[in-house]
Write a protein that binds this DNA or RNA. Structure first.
Length: 458
RNA sequence: GUGAUUGUAGCUCAGCUGGUUAGAGCACUAGAUUGUGGUUCUAGGGGUCGCCGGUUCGAACCCGGUCAGUCACCCCA
C-alpha cells in the first residue's frame, strides 16, 4: 500500500518542530510568568461530556470513536439498532461513547467539576495539547491542531481579564506578530438583543453581526430579516453597527455605546467592564492594538461576559486566538457557581502567520552548533575525544560520519545550518591545536586542544 | 457537511485542439579540484503523469469514481 496521512493531519520535520517549539515555549513561559499551573487531560473524553457544549454546528464537528466489539455475536442486534439510531442523526452509546477532545475548555471544566473539593481557588491553569475537529481542511484550518489555553476559575474579578489581555499582548509582542486584540462583551450584545427583538433573538443577531466586516451591512440586514427580525428591529441593529465603523477609536466607540444603552443595566455593566479593562491595559507599549469591537460575537454559547479574539494584521487567516468569560461552565457538570475566564492561542495558525511574515529568528532553526570534520581514522579518534569535551560543556556537536572530501563535509554543515566546523588533521594533531571555522563569516582561527571546549560557540 | 478548482521528477512548473522515446530550472550524483564549502564549467541518474476504471487504433490530455491539496459557504484556532 501507499502510505498516506488522514485528511487535515500533518507530519512535522525537524525544522518545523523547532519553530513550533519556539512558539510553545514563548507561550508557556508567559503562562508560567503569570502564575498559571500546567494541566493535561486525555485525548478522548466521554461523548456526553462534549456533546451540546459547542452549539449545533460544534456537535457535528466532534470526532467520535467507534466502540470495540460491535461485531461480537452477542452485541450484533444492539449494534444494528444503534446504527439505525445514528442514521437518524442521534448518538447511541451502543455504537459510540467516546470522542476526541474538541477544545481544552470543556475538558478543563470537567476536571474542575470533578476536583473542585481539592482545588484552591482562584484556580489558574494552562494547558497545551492538541484538539481535533472534523472540519473540512483549508488554509489555517486543520483537523488536528494545538491550542494553548490559560483559564482562571473561581473569581469574578476583572483583574483576571486584565491579566489575560496582558498575556496576549506580551506573547505576540515577543513573537513580533502585529495583532489586533479585539474585545467585546456578551452583556453588550445581550443589551442589543433586548432592544431589538428580545433575548431569545440574541443568537440570531450575534451570528449575523459577526459577519459585518466580511459581507457588509446590507447582507447582514438581509440575514437578520431571514432570521425573523422586523424592520424596526433591524434598524436598531443597523444603528448599533454604525458604531463599528469607527472601531479602533475606543473612547468614541465606548461613548456611543454608552448613549445607546444608558437605560440598560446589563449593557451598562458590560461597558463599565470593558472601560476598566481598557484603562488597565492602555499604557502597554506595544505594536499590538487593543480594539473594542461591537461586532465581535463568537459562536461558543457558554460565554457570558468579556469576549476576546486576536487577529494577525496583514495576514488573511482566521483568528489566532480567542476566549472569554463564562459564569457557570462547571454547572454543566453539576457543580454550580464557579465562574471563570480564559484565553486560547492557536499555535498552528500562529505558525502560518509567522512563516508568511518571515518572523522566525534564524537561530531557532539551529540544532547542532559544531561539526567536527572527519579526516581519517587517527584524526577522527582525536576529534572524537575533543567532541565529547565540547558536548560536556553543553554545546550540541557532532562528527561527520565518515572520512570524505571537504566538499561533502562542508555541504553537510551548510544544509543543517551548523555555524561552526572544526578541522583536526595530522598537522593539527602534531601541534595540538584545532582549526575552528565560522561558516557564516568564513573566518577561521587556531585554538589549543585543551581550550576548545571553552570556546564560545555562538 | 455543500459547491468549485487543482494534482506531471525531491521542489517550482511547462506540455498547443488526444498522436512516436513526457520537458525546463533548482536540487541530487560524478568529474574539473588529494586539507577549505557557498561561484563556475562538463557529464549523469531520476517520472506507475495522485489512484482505480471507462471511451479510443492511440489518453498526462476526454468521461466516471476515489484520495489529497486549495478556495467559497458553514463554522472556527
Amino acid at each position: 500500500m501507499k502510505p498516506s496521512l488522514p485528511q487535515g493531519t500533518r507530519d512535522f520535520g525537524s525544522d518545523v518542530v523547532r519553530k513550533r517549539h519556539y512558539i510553545f515555549n514563548t507561550i508557556k513561559t508567559a503562562f508560567e510568568l503569570y502564575g498559571f499551573q500546567p494541566l493535561e487531560t486525555p485525548a478522548m473524553e466521554n461523548l456526553e461530556t462534549l456533546m451540546g457544549k459547542y452549539g449545533e454546528e460544534g456537535d457535528k464537528l466532534i470526532f467520535k470513536i467507534l466502540n470495540n466489539g460491535l461485531n461480537d455475536p452477542k452485541n450484533i442486534e444492539k449494534s444494528r439498532a444503534a446504527f439505525a439510531n445514528v442514521l437518524e442523526g442521534k448518538n447511541d452509546k451502543n455504537l459510540t461513547e467516546r470522542a476526541l477532545r474538541y477544545d481544552l475548555t470543556i475538558p478543563f471544566a470537567r476536571y474542575v467539576a470533578m476536583n473542585h473539593g481539592q482545588l484552591t481557588f482562584p484556580f489558574k491553569r494552562y494547558q497545551i495539547q492538541p484538539v481535533w475537529r472534523a472540519d473540512r481542511p483549508q488554509r489555517g484550518r486543520y483537523r488536528e491542531f494545538y491550542q494553548c489555553d490559560a483559564d482562571v476559575v473561581g473569581s469574578r474579578s476583572l483583574l483576571n481579564e486584565v491579566e489575560l489581555t496582558n498575556i496576549y499582548s506580551t506573547v505576540f509582542e515577543q513573537l513580533c506578530i502585529p495583532v489586533e486584540i479585539r474585545l467585546n462583551s456578551r452583556k453588550i450584545l445581550a443589551a442589543l438583543a433586548d432592544s431589538a427583538g428580545g433575548s431569545e433573538k440574541m443568537m440570531d443577531i450575534t451570528i449575523a453581526i459577526d459577519k459585518l466586516d466580511k459581507i457588509g451591512l446590507e447582507k447582514v440586514q438581509e440575514e437578520l430579516a431571514e432570521r425573523g427580525l422586523d424592520a424596526p428591529q433591524i434598524a436598531v441593529v443597523a444603528n448599533y453597527l454604525s458604531i463599528a465603523n469607527r472601531a479602533g477609536d475606543n473612547d468614541w466607540v465606548l461613548g456611543e455605546l454608552q448613549k445607546l444603552f444608558s437605560d440598560n443595566a446589563t449593557g451598562k455593566t458590560g461597558l463599565d467592564e470593558l472601560t476598566y479593562i481598557l484603562s488597565q491595559t492602555k499604557d502597554l507599549s506595544s505594536v499590538n492594538k487593543i480594539i473594542i469591537d461591537p461586532t465581535l460575537a463568537r459562536g461558543l454559547n457558554y460565554y457570558t461576559g468579556t469576549i476576546y479574539e486576536v487577529k494577525a494584521v496583514g495576514v488573511k487567516i482566521g483568528s489566532i486566538g480567542g476566549g472569554g468569560r463564562y459564569d457557570d461552565l462547571t454547572g454543566l457538570f453539576g457543580v454550580p457557581n464557579i465562574p471563570g475566564v480564559g484565553i486560547s492561542f492557536g499555535v498552528d495558525r500562529i505558525y502560518d502567520v509567522m512563516e508568511e511574515l518571515k518572523l522566525f529568528p534564524a537561530a531557532v532553526e539551529q540544532g547542532t552548533k559544531v561539526l567536527f570534520f572527519n579526516l581519517g581514522e587517527e584524526e577522527s579518534k582525536a576529534a572524537y575525544a575533543l567532541l565529547q569535551d565540547v558536548r560536556r560543556a553543553g554545546t550540541p556537536a557532532e562528527i561527520f560520519h565518515e572520512s570524505q572530501k571537504f566538499d561533502k563535509q562542508f555541504k553537510y554543515a551548510e544544509k543543517k545550518s551548523i555555524p561552526y566546523i572544526v578541522i583536526i588533521g595530522s598537522s593539527e594533531i602534531v601541534e595540538k591545536t584545532a582549526v575552528i571555522k565560522d561558516l557564516r563569516s568564513g573566518q577561521q582561527q587556531k585554538v589549543a586542544f585543551d581550550e576548545l571546549a571553552r570556546f564560545n560557540f555562538v
